[in-house]
Design a protein around this nucleic acid. Structure first.
Lengths: 231, 231
DNA sequence: CGCGGAATTGAACATGGTCAATTCAGGTGG
DNA sequence: CCACCTGAATTGACCATGTTCAATTCCGCG
């Protein structure tokens, strides 16, 4: 299948790649539509491909041996994911599931080293991407270590609004279905606590909830909660 | 200063690099001795160099705006650190301090892109390194989200024993000075709690404490604590 | 209209944090 | 060599945050 280069041209990742190189890359790519709730790959599967999200939204989760689940990250359009092989592991460390109808591009992992060697700039890009993820992870660790739950939830919500916010009348709408449970798994708490917190915020007019929905009405107010103890 | 290539030849990072390339690399390197307690670089400083730890042990910490500190990771001999520039940031995200007398090799960050382009394999290596760190970070997040403090501490101690353990008579000695505070900062708890836990373990004969010292006497017992709820 | 997953909410409880008071180890200087 | 001083560690009492358990209610979809 031939994919038109204009579809991906705008992505930061391919910023400085020549049209020729880009075309060559795309010859080996396969586009795929993923229905809401379907998994692109599952934790533990052999990593046969790596992917790029073109449209939609994915949740990457990990399950512990004892069945507890956490959300590792949310994949946004333009993000690479399913890197496994590049990081010298043969299986996927997590499960990527479509939170909403999505479109992805996939390449066989075998091609990765080749791409990287042919195009060092891509390697640098990829490394920066991973570097950012590492920083995010450290931020999360720092927050979990030092902040109380309400602040962490505030941060998480603000982050979502930046990465997946769509302006909507009286506020910012999180642009994909997200449950309290999801937020709980992102912040390391329980859905009960998240529910209580969001209810409280709703009372204060900071957000407006709904079933798998979230509308932020007062960014400033939330930011205040997020970055400082009140005194 | 000329550094002999045999010093670094054994490191995994330079595994498949030719002697010539390695020598070229080392021409630009500067060796430096760091006294216990001294910082190699501080959080927020402009990232002028990246480093390789040859000998000793470093603790990388981050401080939050409100003064709370966490330990991001411990650097062991053979590890690259102070990558900042490679990850497209201009300042160091943390502080690297010698936990014990150490020897490091440093290169100007400007040389990084050049090295990578000349030697794609190094890029791949570096990426794998970062990938591993990312996984470690996720593991930590998973543990902090789902496990109670005692289990987390058990994991942390076991990890230390793997990475910095030296056999010693009746057990495994953690080979550098580490305080309860340090362990607390690695596991996201307080030194009080860590102290209580270690005291309890000492009573059970699992470990043997001391001022900035730790000796593990029963790996199996600790592992049991680490990976399963008792029932 | 009824079913099921999502959300809300209350009450009891527990883990682990906070505060505070000592003790201890070890390096420094008299 | 000992007395001192500092930072590390220990330990107890109290308390708060957030979890657990449980009971409903709500919403959207078939």
């Amino acid at each position: 299948m031939k994919i038109d280069r204009t579809v991906v041209r705008s992505l930061a990742l391919f910023d400085r790649m020549s049209d020729e190189d880009l075309d060559r890359l795309l010859t080996h790519a396969t586009a795929r539509r993923v229905a809401q709730g379907d998994a692109v790959f599952e934790q533990g599967q052999q990593a046969a491909s790596f992917f790029l999200l073109l449209h939609g939204r994915l949740k990457v989760t990990q399950v512990t041996e004892d069945g507890q689940q956490i959300i590792v990250r949310v994949v946004h359009p333009g993000d690479l994911f399913g890197f496994a092989k590049a990081l010298q592991r043969s299986d996927y460390p997590g499960t990527a599931r479509a939170a909403t109808e999505s479109v992805i591009l996939g390449w066989p992992t075998d091609l990765w080293p080749q791409f990287v060697e042919q195009n060092p700039r891509l390697a640098v890009s990829a490394m920066q991407t991973i570097g950012q993820r590492l920083e995010e992870a450290h931020t999360r660790i720092r927050e979990m270590s030092t902040q109380e739950v309400e602040r962490r939830v505030a941060h998480a919500v603000l982050r979502l609004s930046k990465q997946a916010g769509r302006k909507e009348g009286e506020g910012i709408r999180i642009d994909f279905p997200i449950s309290r449970q999801d937020i709980a798994e992102m912040t390391g708490t329980t859905l009960h606590t998240v529910s209580r917190i969001l209810s409280a915020w709703e009372t204060l007019g900071l957000v407006q909830g709904g079933r798998q929905k979230l509308l932020i009405r007062d960014i400033a107010g939330l930011s205040a909660l997020a970055d400082g103890p009140k005194d």
